[in-house]
Amino acid sequence: MRKIFSLIILIILALGVYICISEIPFGKPGTAVGNYYIEKGIEETGAVNIVTSIVLNYRGFDTLGEVTILFLASLGLGAILATVQNKTRGVITPPSLILTTACRFLFPFILMFGAYIFLHGHLTPGGGFQGGAIIASGFLLRYLGCPQKRIRQSSFVAIESLGGIAFIIIGLLGFTAGGFFLFNFLPKGVANTLLSAGIIPLIYIAIGLKVGAEMAGIIDTLIEES
């Protein structure tokens, strides 16, 4: 009964969506603000990757809010799961030597790849969020591969806090230098080189460390007592 009802209203919705979408052509030219970003992006921010320049420069406040949400989510996760009692589960089969060794071998490379992604955020696809997620997946691999070795959560917290503080301090330095938050006060440099785009690489480093530590912390909290 319920399924049929759901299907009927979904079909009605699909019909409406079809009528609306048929008026929107696929692959038409972009919006005016998008064109502005594309045309003036390099000149104004120095970042070759326009998406990066939007995320960190034009809409920097959004990113600050996003980072805050992420922080609050990890905080709330810890708070909710802090009171959960530890249930002893069945014995986990210890990983084999080959797996452990491979994990140990791969772990630094994954970290390095993540660092590469967020360092080159202004030049190539990727950035702080993606790099941070890759770093976190490296930690995930480590947790799965060598479960007996634990990283202390306080070090995650420290890195996370440092990343957040660095972001805000860089933003506030913009206040003193240029009069508004996240003002790009460093020299733009030559486009397409690593040392360009002013504060964007610095912020992406901060975000990358913060996101990586946060995601790894979330995984750590979830995996901790099971």
Binding site: G30, Y37, V55, D62, T63, I69, S74, F129
Partner: peptide
Amino acid sequence: DPTPQALVLTSIVIGVA
């Protein structure tokens, strides 16, 4: 258009949170 891409980037991260 780069604007939707920037927005979706934000959306994905918030989604996982």
